[in-house]
Computed example of a mutant assay.
Amino acid sequence: MLESLEKLSLVKGQLVTNAAWLLFDKGSTGYNVHLGRFKTPSYIIDDRMYNGTLFDMVEEIMRYLISQIKVAFEIKGMPTQRTEIFEYPLPALREMALNCLIHRNYLSPIDVQICLFDNYVEFYNPGGLAGSLTVEDLKKDNYKAHARNKLIAEAFYLIGGIEKYGSGFLRMRKEIATYPTMKMEFGEMPNGFMNKLSYREQKISTKMDSRVSEGVNGGVNEVVNLSPTLYERRWSL
């Protein structure tokens, strides 16, 4: 185990790197994930705070979201089969959670914030895009990813959590394209980056219809200009 950590540069001699501490330490790291279920911007239905290893945080985020989002049931076939259709594509939610944890700025004391409303969900992480990557680049399928936290990204890659050269937004677009009225908005804002999924009508059938083209061509890659006041309704930072 120690030899493997040394090969990954997570341990250097007698020193444990910050990346190893964030990935494996079972104590409180001081970097929280704040999740909430909102009815309106000022009406909080549920409020949770999680802290732990980054690997654990991904699973905690997904457990919370799955417990809060709506699920439609499609009954079809003989014999009768029941298909669960989640309010949002779970692989896209997981990718957004991974992005928040892997690419956040760990020099910032601001928490990762995930806010779930009746027909949209917002993921906010402190720290803008790394390197020369731009919001316009993320709209393309051949963008070149830049990892702010290379050792953390490498660790998630080795367990199969992410693609090494970054294809997260491409995978999210493919998942969202199967949800007829859903769109993804994203952009930089002061001190961070926001990614949002929203829809007009909840998906209740696995059958594709003509509205899918609207979702693919009419806003899946939409970029939003974010004002500093967007998160003023959130919890105190």
Rank of each mutant, 00 (worst) to 15 (best):
L2S: 15
S4N: 14
L5Y: 09
E6F: 14
E6K: 13
K7S: 07
K7L: 10
K7P: 04
L8C: 14
L8T: 12
L8D: 14
L10N: 07
K12T: 12
T17V: 03
L22T: 03
F24M: 02
K26G: 05
Y31D: 08
F38P: 02
P41L: 08
Y43A: 09
I45D: 02
I45W: 01
D46A: 11
R48Q: 15
M49L: 14
N51D: 15
G52P: 03
G52D: 04
F55N: 03
D56I: 01
M57V: 09
M57S: 06
I61T: 08
K70M: 05
V71T: 08
A72D: 06
I75G: 12
M78G: 09
P79T: 00
P79E: 00
Q81I: 08
E84S: 07
E84H: 07
A92F: 02
L93T: 03
L98E: 04
N99Q: 01
R104G: 05
Y106R: 00
Y106V: 00
L107W: 01
V112C: 04
L116F: 10
F117E: 12
D118V: 12
D118H: 06
Y120S: 09
P126S: 02
G127R: 00
S132N: 06
V135Q: 04
V135T: 10
V135L: 12
D137M: 00
K139T: 15
K139G: 11
K140A: 07
A145P: 04
H146F: 15
A147W: 08
R148S: 07
A153P: 00
F156D: 00
L158S: 12
G161P: 03
K164R: 03
Y165T: 05
G168W: 13
G168R: 09
M172L: 11
M172E: 11
K174A: 05
E175P: 06
T178G: 03
F186P: 02
M189C: 09
S198V: 14
E201N: 11
Q202C: 10
K203L: 04
E214I: 13
E214G: 10
V216Q: 04
N217P: 11
V220A: 11
V220H: 03
E222S: 15
V223R: 06
V223D: 01
V224C: 13
S227R: 15
Y231G: 10
E232V: 13
R233Y: 14
R234G: 14
